[in-house]
Design a binder for these strands. Structure first.
Lengths: 204, 204
DNA sequence: CTATATTGTGAACAGTGAATCACAATTCTT
DNA sequence: AAGAATTGTGATTCACTGTTCACAATATAG
């Protein structure tokens, strides 16, 4: 059966989405042009009408990840001005995102996406560091307003914030849902708050 | 040049070590029989005298990882009876281990090691969970002795403990040493202690 | 020292997956 | 509606990698 002719822009989105899905399901290592094409409903060679090659697709996936991370933070900033609330909201959003799309940790951790591609490795590093610096900024603002202790380095705190969700996401992956990511995050949050919040503020 | 004839047992160790080195350097994705053979100093086909195939080698790497994780915990248990001190020591050992052997996170995270091998994925999950339950046990003992707060679930605390080191290790990997793992861990530790320790105990 | 088992070697095989290309079908333009 | 541009298809090529096998070299046993 012949696939319906579809404009490149839409196909590109479909292809990147299919790639991300495939990574979520089977990992970066199992990502293949054939597999992507099947999911999109076209023939492998047709994919080359829309992307220069596999590398190009991977770059697209990376760009998607970057947009999503940025979007989460900006949304959270709009929803509340309080630093701790922002962090809590962000944590929940991340947990949601990671439990829906389990491929994301693979993108960051799995080497398969950047072995032999130093520039892409640098790109991944840049994405992570940008994300961290956004978290860091929220923390710094919280310190200025007195909600967050001054004696914790914002950098350290931001990495620890990641640490609340990242190992949990990996466990969720490994056990294929045998580990409840959301539940963990909800338990971990009050503990984390005690690490960084000033005592004069109580958090339910 | 011909490689010296060496008994299987020794060769197996060499091969597993070479595989781990290779993973550290270039990632699981770049792990190849040819590469391993080169590092060991034999020809690819000779490797099959000592391992049934690539899968067998990967199982060997996993077993090595398992032994090392277990060893760290047992060593720490011998060195001190105090729960918080044990955790601190363990944290440092892990940091040391991860900064020396950067391939380890890849083994756990990279899908390349278990795509299409459900049994190996289960094995990795088991290794991680065993390790977590050991940490958990230390925490529970600390709670009984009153050093660790009762209101933090040991499971949550153990995952958070992992979270102190794991994202840092990944960042270290991504930036190729641009992120000081040891330094982060030393800063994060006192913050973490505040999360879980009872207030009546002060930790320098 | 000789026989046997063990280990190493090179060549060849097979499967996989990315990429290319000429050609066909479809959509868009005018 | 006719021509041009775009998109889809199937066949094919190419490189890579894991694996096997007959044979050679080396260590070990009796």
């Amino acid at each position: 059966m012949r696939a319906r002719k579809t404009e490149t822009e839409l196909r590109q989105e479909q292809i990147v989405a299919a790639a991300l899905d495939m990574i979520s399901a089977e990992g970066v290592h199992a990502l293949s042009i054939v597999g992507i094409a099947e999911r999109v409903g076209i023939v492998p060679s047709a994919l080359y009408r829309h992307f220069k090659g596999k590398d190009d697709v991977l770059d697209g996936v990376l760009a998607l990840l970057e947009r999503r991370l940025l979007r989460n933070v900006t949304q959270v900033r709009k929803q509340t001005p309080d630093a701790l609330s922002r962090l809590r909201l962000l944590l929940m959003k991340q947990a949601q995102m990671l439990s829906e799309n389990r491929g994301i940790p693979h993108i960051v951790f799995s080497d398969g996406i950047y072995t032999g591609h130093p520039e892409r490795k640098a790109k991944v590093a840049e994405i992570m560091q940008s994300h961290l610096s956004r978290i860091q900024k929220i923390i710094e603002e919280g310190q200025q307003k007195g909600a967050i202790r001054e004696d914790v380095a914002p950098t350290t705190a931001s990495v620890m914030f990641l640490g609340m969700i990242l190992p949990a996401a990996v466990l969720g992956n490994l056990t294929e849902g045998g580990f409840d990511l959301i539940a963990h995050v909800e338990k971990a949050w009050p503990v984390f708050v005690r690490c960084i919040a000033t005592n004069n503020k109580s958090q339910s």
